[in-house]
Simulated assay, not measured.
Amino acid sequence: MSKPFVMELFLAGVLTGSHSTRQRHLRQAKHIQADIANRWQRETPWTWQKKHLTWFLQHRLNRRREATRYYYLLTVRLLVRRLQKLWVFRCHAKI
């Protein structure tokens, strides 16, 4: 039986800042994980591709405020840093 994935342990090495900032990143990372798992059945970040995170940023946040999209972008950049990938994401203005 496999153990459930724990986002806190996954991000532990890259999380910095105040307690509230770390909690926000964890909350948003869990939200990203749940949406990607729902859409593509990819349970852990180790199985994600760049297209999964691009989909989340473009389609799941398209009706959110610009500030919200920016904070999620920061969380995505933390996830990418933890995965040790060279993926680049930019903030997209609402159309």
Rank of each mutant, 00 (worst) to 15 (best):
V14E: 11
W55R: 03
Y70K: 15
K3C: 12
L78C: 01
A29V: 03
T68E: 05
R69F: 08
N62L: 14
K51D: 09
K51S: 10
K94P: 05
Y72T: 04
R64L: 13
L11F: 11
L73P: 05
W48Y: 06
L73D: 02
Q58F: 10
L79D: 03
R39H: 02
W46P: 06
H92Y: 05
L79V: 06
M1Q: 14
W87P: 02
F89M: 00
Q28F: 07
A29F: 03
Q49Y: 07
R81C: 00
S2I: 12
K94Y: 03
L83H: 00
E8N: 15
E8I: 12
S20D: 14
R42G: 07
C91K: 14
L73K: 00
R64F: 11
K3G: 11
Y70T: 11
L86N: 03
R22M: 13
H19I: 14
R39P: 02
A12F: 10
R27N: 08
V88M: 02
Y72I: 08
L74T: 07
R82A: 02
V80L: 00
T68P: 12
H25F: 07
V80M: 00
L53A: 04
W48C: 03
R27S: 10
R90D: 04
Q23W: 09
L74I: 08
I36Y: 06
G13S: 12
N38M: 07
M1G: 15
A67R: 14
T75E: 02
Q84V: 04
Q41R: 05
T54P: 01
R90N: 04
L78A: 01
Q49G: 04
P4A: 11
A93E: 08
K94Q: 06
T16G: 12
R82C: 00
A93G: 13
E43R: 08
D35G: 06
T75R: 00
N62I: 12
L61A: 08
R82Y: 00
G17M: 11
L74S: 07
F89R: 02
R64Q: 15
L15C: 14
I32V: 04
L61D: 04
W46F: 12
L26I: 07
I36H: 00
Q33R: 08
K30E: 05
L15N: 14
L15M: 13
A34C: 05
L74E: 09
L57E: 03
T75G: 02
V14T: 15
W48T: 00
S20Q: 14
F10R: 12
D35P: 01
F5W: 14
T44C: 05
R82M: 01
L74N: 08
R90H: 09
W48K: 00
L79Q: 05
V76R: 01
F5P: 09
T16Q: 13
L53K: 00
